[in-house]
Design a protein around this nucleic acid. Structure first.
Lengths: 242, 242
DNA sequence: ACCTGAACACCGTTCAAGT
DNA sequence: ACCTGAACACCGTTCAAGT
């Protein structure tokens, strides 16, 4: 669609880092991680590999740039709606990222890779900042800012990573129900001695709603934060062990 | 070390799926993800690629098997020490996984990939079961089991993913301090308009302890769970928005 | 049933050469 | 300064052939 148009004016606009990253995102969206190769990329840009390497150090840097671009867009859009509370702001950030992963299924894997490879890089910093402002607005005392924001970040990235697979198989509600039914059935077939708990919640898994589940987890973390770091007070001791 | 011994008896013990997975883990431990190639693997096993493909479908399956093996070991070991409380049990599971990632730095990335690719596969089920038993012991009413356990799972995997990089650069305390100092300095250099919060917590990030931070997050989730799902009661409404 | 190993298609990256 | 494109080293995977 837009491809045809863009291709016809190919050599009129000069190659640039942004053009390259843009094309990389398009390839990733269209065919997943395996769709992004230097051959596909150079064909789409009507150039040679050397030209790409002039603007980008290597494939890892290209993937990092694509990830950051998509995340930045998602966070900017998430910031638009007026928030009634810091809690809603946190949920908006989380759902914004979730939505971005739904649009770009490759994003979940890349976020995880970036996180593991470069734990405090620019991608992380962007999300961290968005969450941190809401944590501050929550009235958490300054001493708890870093800890509380990190916990939210970790939960959101972990949950988003798992829910990514839903995007890969977008499917109608029926397909989704079929998938959940299959997993639920598989759980019920697990060894009763090894997996008593998992078997017991097989029905709950079949009936669960990803978005509801995602938000419930955020509420656990938010509740924990406001309980253990009440506004204006020093942090309390964690829940007693024994 | 053990390699020499094993190599000399190479053709006496027959090739098997377990031997292959074991060798894969050794290669991953020794040289990271890029160290596991079919060429390195077949050389170590003194065989050809066809032999490996007879036991294993492809590289993805091999990586999944390596991941599951290491996770299973970690969870089995984590279950050994007697627990004074369900809370301590959850912490033991989390620290067990953390420890496994420290020993096998490639594990964090692979866990993230497995999670995104096959969200309810056997690896996830193993961790889910370990956490779920403690959630049940916590007295959470049955209706909240799935939600509460999932939230713990997501937090732990997200946090473990980020802390993986520390293992890659194991380093002494001095190297670690240098790294944190560099990140902290980079945060202070961020644009004051775009990153006010991140700049404000740059010092906290430099002084933070990964393990403490990790456990603090678990306490947030546990506190949220026991607050919103008090024993014997139906779930309460989430924290008010406005 | 299990293993061998040459061959294949494809990948990221380099670099001498052009403009 | 920016781009070209042939060439390189390496990868996962296949498959006809052996035992």
């Amino acid at each position: 669609m837009a491809t045809r148009t863009r291709r016809s004016q190919r050599r009129t606009e000069a190659l640039s880092r942004e053009r390259i990253v843009e094309a990389a995102v398009e390839l990733l969206d269209a065919a997943g991680e395996s769709g992004l190769t230097f051959r596909a990329l150079t064909e789409r840009l009507a150039t040679g590999p050397g030209a790409v390497y002039w603007h980008v150090a290597n494939k890892d840097e290209l993937l990092a740039a694509a990830t950051e671009g998509v995340v930045t867009t998602a966070l900017t859009e998430a910031a638009v709606p007026p928030e009634d509370s810091p809690q809603e702001g946190v949920r908006a950030v989380a759902l914004g990222l979730s939505g971005a992963i739904e649009e770009h299924p490759w994003l979940a894997t890349q976020l995880a890779l970036q996180l593991a490879r470069n734990p405090w890089g620019t991608v992380t910093a962007r999300i961290f900042e968005s969450l941190g402002r809401r944590v501050r607005a929550l009235g958490v005392p300054e001493s708890g800012w870093f800890t509380a924001t990190s916990a939210l970040l970790h939960y959101i990235l972990g949950a988003a990573g798992q829910n990514a697979a839903n995007a890969t198989a977008p499917g109608t509600g029926a397909e989704r129900a079929e998938f959940l039914g299959a997993v639920s059935a598989a759980w019920k077939d697990l060894d009763p001695d090894d997996y008593p708990f998992t078997r017991a919640v097989a029905d709950q898994m079949r009936e669960h709603d990803d978005r509801e589940q995602f938000l419930a987890g955020i509420d656990f973390v938010l509740t924990g934060i406001t309980t253990l770091h009440p506004p204006g007070a020093p942090p309390r001791t964690p829940p007693a062990g024994t």
